[in-house]
Amino acid sequence: MISKYSYGHTVTKQIINALKAHVVRSRTAIAAVFLGVYNESEFDVERLPETLEKITVFLKNETRNTDMVFSFAGKLKWLIILSQSGEREATAFLRRLYVSVKNNDILDLENQEILFSASVAEIGNDEGSFEKLVTEGTLALTESLSKGPEQIEYVTTFKKRPLETVKVSILEENDVFRKVLYRTIENLNLNNFETEIKEFQDGYEFLESDWYFSSHTHLIIMNDILPRQSGLDVLHKIRMLPNNKKFIVFMMTKRSSEEDMIYAYESGADNYFIKPFNLRLLEVEIKRTLERLWT
C-alpha cells in the first residue's frame, strides 16, 4: 500500500475499516498512532500549511510503505497506521521518530525544533467504530501533549483480540488417558482462544466424522498407532486437503524410533511426544503454538 495523506474523512474511514477486517482474518494487529506537535504554539500560524506538508513528507519517509500517514486538515496532527504492529512495535517506532526528527535537515524549518508527543491504539479486532477510534485517540493525544514532549499514551479499548474458536481432536485408544488429555486441554488457560474438544477412539472414527471440515484452526493430538486407521493415515489424509494449513498436528508415540520420528515430521507433524511425556510440556506447547498464530 502506498501512503497517502490529506484524504477526506470518508476515504480514511473506508481504508481503516478494510484494514480492521484484515486484522481478524490474518491474525495480525495494527497500530493507530495519533501524533501531535508539543510546541505547536512556537510555529508561525501563517506558514502552517507549508509546515504541515513538510512534516507529512518527513513522516512518510520514516514509515514503511505498508504503513499509512493521514494528516488532520489544518492541524499539526497526524494519524499513522502501522501494519503488522502492536503497542510494542508502535512504541519502538515513536522512539525512533523522536530521535530522528532532531537530527533531520530535510525538514528545514528555520532551526525551529519540533517536539512530538503521541498516543497509540493497538487494534486487535474489528469491533469499535472509526469515529470512536478517532475520538479516543485524539483524547489520549491531548492528554499526552499536556504531559510534555516525547510522551506516549496508550488506548487499550481496541486492543482486545477476538475470541477465536479452536477445535481440538484427541485420538487415543486408552479411555483413562484420553479423558486425562481432555481435562488437561479443557483446563488450559488460553488468552484469545476457546476450545471445542472432541474425543475419538481411532483414526477411522475421526475421518468418518465431518468434524474436521470446518474452517476453524484445528489441533489434532493423536497416537501414531491406532486401530483401523492409524495416526499416519490421518496425517496423510488431512495434509492432502486443500486447506490443510489450519491443522496443527501433535503426534504421540510409544516407540522411540528416530526414523519414525523423522518420517512423522516429514509427513507434516508439528510436534512429536514420546510416551511417557510430561503433561506440562504438552500444555506449554499447545499454548505457544496457538499464541504464535497471532503475530
Binding site: I225, L226, R228, S230, K254, R255, S256, S257
Partner: peptide
C-alpha cells in the same frame, strides 16, 4: 496389511 501396520512393535 492394515492389521500389520497397526502392530505394536518398535521397528
Amino acid at each position: 496389511v492394515r492389521s500389520a501396520l497397526n502392530l505394536k512393535y518398535p521397528q
